[in-house]
Write a protein that binds this DNA or RNA. Sequence first.
DNA 1: CAGGATCCCGTTAGATACTG
DNA 2: CAGTATCTAACGGGATCCTG
Lengths: 120, 120
Amino acid sequence: MALPPWQPCPIRDVLDRIGDQWSLLILEALGRESVMRFNELSREVEGISRQMLSRTLKRLEQDGFVGRTVYAEVPPRVEYALTELGHSFLGPMRALVAWADGHHDQIRDARTAYVAREGS
Amino acid sequence: MALPPWQPCPIRDVLDRIGDQWSLLILEALGRESVMRFNELSREVEGISRQMLSRTLKRLEQDGFVGRTVYAEVPPRVEYALTELGHSFLGPMRALVAWADGHHDQIRDARTAYVAREGS
DNA sequence: CAGGATCCCGTTAGATACTG
DNA sequence: CAGTATCTAACGGGATCCTG
């Protein structure tokens, strides 16, 4: 989502980061386990490719949601964890997820009702 | 965001709808005014094109967030308002927006700190 | 183990022009 | 007033292969 030249909107700025396909799911996983490694995450976040995991983690790191620690070992070990900022985001995020779970049926019903009214 | 064949995830399902560039801003506007007409919305939601407003409203209507009432008049009058489902969404949405407003600076700081560390 | 590089395609969103 | 149609550039995301 390319930001047009007008003033930076905080809402959109945050939504651009967490509105993609994977960010929320990664944050949710990290919210459960507190510290996770790369392949651990790729197993936990079902369906994600390594590339998207890598990209999304990097963006979350850039924006301060996630911290990344590299250990100088062989084989390499990299650990990801929520930062304080990331933790503070869990509250509103879980409220949103809870709402989504609770109203998913209504949304699906609305969709079928819509196609029944308007067709396709 | 094309849903892969595995089971429909409520979180992603909701996020696909409200995670785009305009939905949240439209819902926020409708949350303030309770009833709005098309051109009123296009003025209120700054920067949106008529086309994107039209498309996004239609999707929000399909998913039951927004109701649409057409009056058989000349010139035509169409009013948009939140449904009950839409209203129930305002709570978690505002929690998210408040978080975004409150932590926007930290995110921007994290970004500049990142480029200072890693470069570009 | 933890990624990066490349290719490729479907979707998104902007601009512009047109309509009932 | 309240939209729709078309065209196009940009982006997201999957698959595959390669590396330190």
